[in-house]
């Protein structure tokens, strides 16, 4: 059995590209992602650069996982709405999105769920603050602020792509 190690690390939702870069740097150094949990990444020792790792936000969809497996990718697990894959580098290039439209769709998916969770937190926070008058709702309001900030970052990325889309696909 291959040597494994577990790393705890926090990435904000708008940093998913940075997270993916980090996971691929780990793979380049001979640590391929094996499983994921909440802020928890478990790696196994492999040849350096043996795998390419990708992640994306997508709702539960068995058909999609089958489709990915069919194309040679290995499904590693899910953390909330985020799913993780890896593919042996020897099987060829591995990307999840190959055009601007699908990248924009992905950002829209992320934005939509941030908006829903953000609004829910705002509502719960306000109700708590009004009804109890104590600091009970503060944590929700803080979450709502953070989620709305995230939404802004994601929307910014999407707008950039949209601008690019005006000239080419």
């Amino acid at each position: 059995m291959a040597e494994t190690k577990t790393v705890y690390k926090i990435f904000w939702v708008w940093e998913f590209e940075k997270e993916e870069r980090w996971l691929n740097e780990m793979a380049m150094n001979g640590w391929a992602l094996k499983s994921v949990g909440f802020c928890r990444f478990t790696f196994e020792r492999t040849e350096p650069g043996a795998y390419t790792v990708r992640l994306e936000m997508r709702g539960a969809d068995e058909g999609y996982l089958d489709f990915m497996r069919e194309s040679g990718a290995e499904y590693l697990g899910r953390c909330f709405q985020w799913i993780y894959f890896r593919k042996q580098a020897s099987l060829g290039a591995f990307d999840l999105f190959s055009d601007i439209d699908s990248r924009m769709d992905h950002l829209t998916r992320i934005g939509t769920s941030l908006r829903i969770i953000g609004l829910a937190n705002l509502l719960i926070g306000l109700v708590n603050a009004l009804l109890s008058g104590s600091g009970a709702g503060a944590i929700n309001l803080l979450c709502a602020t953070l989620l709305m900030y995230g939404l802004g970052r994601i929307t910014g990325k999407r707008d950039q792509l949209e601008k690019e889309r005006e000239l080419h696909e």
């Binding site: 994306e56 999609y64 489709f67 990915m68 194309s71 990718a73 290039a93 990307d95 999840l96 999105f97 190959s98 055009d99 439209d101 699908s102 769709d105 992905h106």
Partner: peptide
């Protein structure tokens, strides 16, 4: 032209 799996599925 290389179609990525996520793009193709969509």
């Amino acid at each position: 032209v290389r179609l990525a799996a996520g793009t193709l599925y969509g």
